[in-house]
Amino acid sequence: MSESTAQIIERVGLIPVLRAKNAKQAHAVVDAMMEGGVTVVEVTMTVPGAIDVLRDLKQKYGDKLLLGSGTVTTAKEAEATIEAGAEFVVSPSVHLEVIEATKAAHKVSIPGALTPTEVITAHRAGADYVKIFPCSAMGGAPYLKALLAPFPFLKLIPTGGVTLDTAESFLKAGARALGVGSDLVNLTAVDEERPEIITQAAQAYLQVFARART
């Protein structure tokens, strides 16, 4: 039986957040991450031509890469990105219409929330996971742990301030996966034609997961 989107997200443990300046840069980053064993990526709507980037990545990698869309704030955007190949849809905040459109298409919904009220609102609206954003601004791993105390059934994905140094503490606090930005999605490395920096970072993150899970 093939793995579900949720199973892949939790097995890989990482959702790299791609905010590239153009399609060429986006492809180079994904190539380098895949080389390091990370097979999930969130293409944000802030990437110029994000829909085309999603479509091209889907065509290039097929089932080898789990694609998601990010910074999605309307149902129309959610539907367009799903049509282009997104299997999960991420928002920076709670947009009920986005959750609804994502679930109607049988895809995985990951809205962003911060306060206990927002988090439980997202969960009750049908979110599969809740992205805690910006997590580091609220104290990082201890904040995640505090949220899970009254709501142990929640599946949380901290994003914002996740680095190789903090990754393990987030996992120990109960994170189901981690949203990672520039610490892994290193645009400078691509611009300087040093993709191996991204490949090595991808491998290092996967090692942290392997350690934390044993």
Rank of each mutant, 00 (worst) to 15 (best):
T81I: 07
Q59C: 06
D52N: 14
L96I: 11
G68A: 14
A26I: 00
V41Y: 08
G49Q: 10
K145S: 15
V119N: 06
P158A: 11
S69V: 13
I82H: 04
G49R: 09
E97H: 12
H106G: 04
L154Y: 13
Y61M: 02
P92H: 12
V29R: 03
H123C: 12
A75P: 01
T115L: 13
R19D: 11
H95Q: 05
G36Y: 12
L147G: 09
V17I: 15
I99A: 10
G37M: 12
Y143I: 09
M138E: 14
V94E: 04
L147V: 02
E97S: 15
T159R: 03
E77G: 04
P158C: 13
F151V: 04
G13N: 07
A146K: 05
L54K: 01
S93F: 13
S93I: 09
D31G: 05
T102Y: 04
H123M: 08
V72C: 08
S93R: 11
G112S: 12
T102P: 02
K107V: 07
E118D: 14
D31C: 00
F151A: 12
H95N: 13
A125E: 04
T73N: 14
K60F: 00
V40D: 03
A127K: 08
G49F: 14
A146P: 04
G140L: 09
Y61H: 07
T115Y: 10
R19E: 05
V72Q: 03
V30Q: 00
D52T: 14
L67K: 05
V130A: 02
L67C: 01
A32M: 11
P134N: 14
G36E: 06
G139Y: 05
T73C: 15
T115D: 06
G140F: 11
Q59T: 13
Y61A: 06
L148K: 12
L147R: 06
L65R: 02
G112Y: 02
T74G: 01
A146T: 09
Q25W: 01
L147H: 07
K21V: 03
L54T: 02
T74S: 12
T44E: 01
L54W: 01
A105N: 12
K60V: 00
A23D: 12
V40C: 03
P142G: 06
L67G: 07
G70R: 01
E97M: 06
A101S: 13
A113D: 01
V119Q: 07
T39G: 02
L148G: 10
F88W: 09
I120S: 10
K103L: 05
I82Y: 09
A113N: 03
G68T: 10
I157S: 02
T71G: 14
L54C: 04
L154W: 10
C135H: 08
E79R: 10
S69K: 01
E97K: 02
T121C: 09
